[in-house]
Design a protein around this nucleic acid. Structure first.
Length: 591
RNA sequence: GGGGGCGUGGUCUAGGGGCCUAGGAUGUCUGCCUGUCACGCAGAAGGUCGCGAGUUCGAAUCUCGUCGCCCCCGCCA
């Protein structure tokens, strides 16, 4: 038998069509003199009926079929009796089978292939081929394919070349731990698997490629999280002579193409742009969730004239009061304690609350409020008419930077708990002009916040040579993150294309001339033969698809992901190697 | 590197010192059933309670170790 239709095609065809389908037995309902089998292929499922009055031979064959057997069914569709019609695709018809061919039997699977998976994730990974038969996983893989196809299609119209770069490479200075591959030919030497194609793409700019992209695998040997895998995929992109606006427009166009292709959604362009400093001040985060307002307010001035000593003392030390207002919320003792615990867990000394619209003084610090009207005025952006002025200020007292970090997290928790988040809104934004350097919290040392190839904003260029830490910390970079719903989707920057400036920056982070020469000599040399200014960005494909399909687990959008300890239950990787391989590689295990 | 949670027939789970001869659901097998679609009904098989040591008269249950999985911090775009 030869397949004539996929299930999707047969559902689209007129009822009465003759066809041969091939697929997997998804379920069997044996009623004695009538058998129904649900057949599944990649495109769908269809009820197949075995009726002895139609074909006695098919009926006998159907009795022997079991879940996950691979079969070919020949027959024709017919309408279902009116009261048996269902409202899922193909629910108006059934496929009457006349001939059955058993292509492959299947052992009883370790778990049932069904949409409401009951199997543990470990099981799903070990028998990934069974898990991937589920419609939802097919949808995820399909969505991923559509996203990447849309990206390629769009960038191709914009004059980009897709170019592959090596996996066996030198260590790239991204800051993460490298995965390393021993060289047989060069005993004692190692390749590093790239943390990103960063250096290669800059070299491609020096090569005059001008517009490059690649769907690139990036490998980092760091501990995993729900949204992190040891290998993840980026749309790696770089362009020469481009302004920031040109790059933003390009990426906005790319995202719009992806959202249209995958969801049929029209994105609101251009995306908001928020300077880093502003994002921190308003949202306490460099990846603000813009699906709800409830911005952080500096309420220090509203406490002028309070008789609360701890506030006056704090303010005298330079501390500030920052808060978030949530309309319609009134805290019970229990809830106040809960939120206080949350604030403390985030590092706050305590939580101050003031309730508005209450007859009596409600809230932990309400009795210290000098003038309630000012708190009402400050709440204006988040006041909701339906709540009749009732609501609660959540506040912390402390150093500004610490407050903002705490309130940023607390804002997210409040948003989630009180369902402030507009789930139907795509909260896109560009966060721009990050600091080039940041202060290490423990050591207090000034270290580059981004990788060392990021160009400072032109206005801050002269500060670069300064030895004053404060001066260095005030330098902004010409870089940008693309944020969606409070998660970072992409990160990019203008790169340094002046070899001397690059050398200075590398020295600034503590590298000696010798180290620079040894590690990046080849790279800096490329910039000596005519290097164009260039900038780029790298959106994370996995995270993008997570948003498109609405999952919190990166493993759900990767065909063969690894566990939290970076092992693969399907293949058993990583695994030991033969004695002979150790020898050949000139290696020896320590024990 | 640190913290937390979980591990019980194929699968998912109940049970947290004696009530366990380990309960349920689902899957599997057998029989019946012509309109099922989570088919139904009747019956059956299926367990070193992750592994190791300890406490105890007695451990699925408590303790320690170990392995695996998941989550969080560190780390990492």
């Amino acid at each position: 038998m030869k397949r004539t239709h996929t299930i999707e095609q047969l559902i689209a065809a007129p009822i009465g069509a003759e066809a041969t389908l091939m697929g997997w037995v998804a379920g069997r309902r044996d009623l004695g003199q009538l058998i129904f089998i649900t057949l599944r292929d990649r495109w769908g499922e269809l009820q197949c009926a075995f009726d002895p009055t139609e074909s006695h031979e098919a009926m006998l064959a159907a009795e022997k079929l079991r879940s996950e057997f691979v079969v070919a069914f020949n027959g024709m569709t017919r309408p279902r009796p009116e009261k048996e019609v269902r409202d899922y695709p193909g629910g108006d018809r059934e496929f009457v089978v006349k001939h059955v061919e058993l292509i492959a039997t299947a052992e009883t699977p370790p778990f049932v292939v069904e949409e409401e998976v009951k199997a543990s994730e470990e099981m799903r990974l070990k028998y990934r081929y069974l898990d991937l038969r589920r419609r939802q996983m097919v949808k995820h893989l399909t969505m991923r394919h559509q996203a990447v196809t849309a990206i390629r299609g769009y960038l191709n119209t914009q004059g980009f070349l897709e170019i592959e770069t090596p996996l066996l490479a030198r260590s790239t200075p991204e800051g993460a731990r490298d995965y390393v591959v021993p060289s047989r030919v060069h005993p004692g030497k190692f390749y590093a698997l790239p943390q990103s194609p960063q250096l290669f793409k800059q070299i491609l700019m020096c090569s005059g490629i001008d517009k490059y992209y690649q769907i690139a695998r990036c490998l980092r040997d760091e501990d995993l999280r729900g949204n992190r895998q040891p290998e993840h995929t980026q749309l790696d992109l770089e362009m020469s002579f481009a302004t920031r606006d040109e790059l933003f427009t390009l990426i906005e166009g790319t995202m719009a193409a992806v959202w249209k292709a995958c969801l049929g959604a029209k994105l609101q362009l251009p995306f908001r742009r928020i300077p880093y400093d502003e994002a921190i001040a308003r949202f306490g985060s460099d990846k603000p969730d813009l699906r709800f307002k409830n911005e952080i307010a500096d309420l220090t001035a509203l406490w002028d004239g309070t008789d609360a000593n701890f506030i006056n003392d704090g303010v005298a030390q330079g501390h500030r009061v920052h808060g978030v207002y949530v309309s319609g919320v009134s805290l019970s003792r229990k809830h106040l304690d809960r939120w206080t615990d949350s604030a403390k867990a985030l590092g706050a000394g305590g939580l101050m609350t003031v309730e508005l619209g209450s007859d009596k003084q409600a809230g932990s610090v309400a009795r210290f409020v000098p003038e309630m009207a000012k708190f009402e005025a400050a709440a204006a952006p988040d006041l909701k008419k339906s709540d009749e002025g009732k609501g609660t200020w959540f506040m912390v007292l402390g150093p500004a930077a610490k407050n903002l970090k705490i309130m940023g997290q607390l804002r997210l928790q409040l948003g989630k708990h009180y369902e402030l988040i507009n789930e139907s809104f795509w909260g896109w934004a560009w966060i721009v002009d990050f600091p080039l350097y940041e202060q290490d919290e423990d050591s207090g040392e000034v270290a580059p916040a981004h990788h060392a190839f990021t160009h400072p904003l032109a206005a801050d260029l002269d500060k670069l040579l300064s030895d004053d830490p404060a001066e260095l910390l005030s330098i902004h970079a010409d870089n940008y993150d693309l944020v969606l719903n409070g998660e970072e989707m992409a990160s990019g920057s203008l790169r340094i294309s002046d070899p001397e400036l690059q050398r200075k920056v590398l020295k600034k982070i503590g590298m000696t001339d010798e180290q620079i020469e040894a590690r990046f000599g080849w790279f800096l040399e490329a910039f000596k033969y005519g290097a164009p200014p260039h900038r780029g960005i790298a959106p994370g494909i996995d995270r993008m698809v997570m948003k498109l399909v609405g999952t919190d687990s990166i493993r759900d959008v990767i065909a063969f992901p690894k566990t939290a300890t970076a092992s693969c239950p399907l293949t058993g990787a990583p695994a030991g190697i033969d004695e002979a391989q150790w020898t050949e590689l000139n290696l020896k295990p320590l024990k």
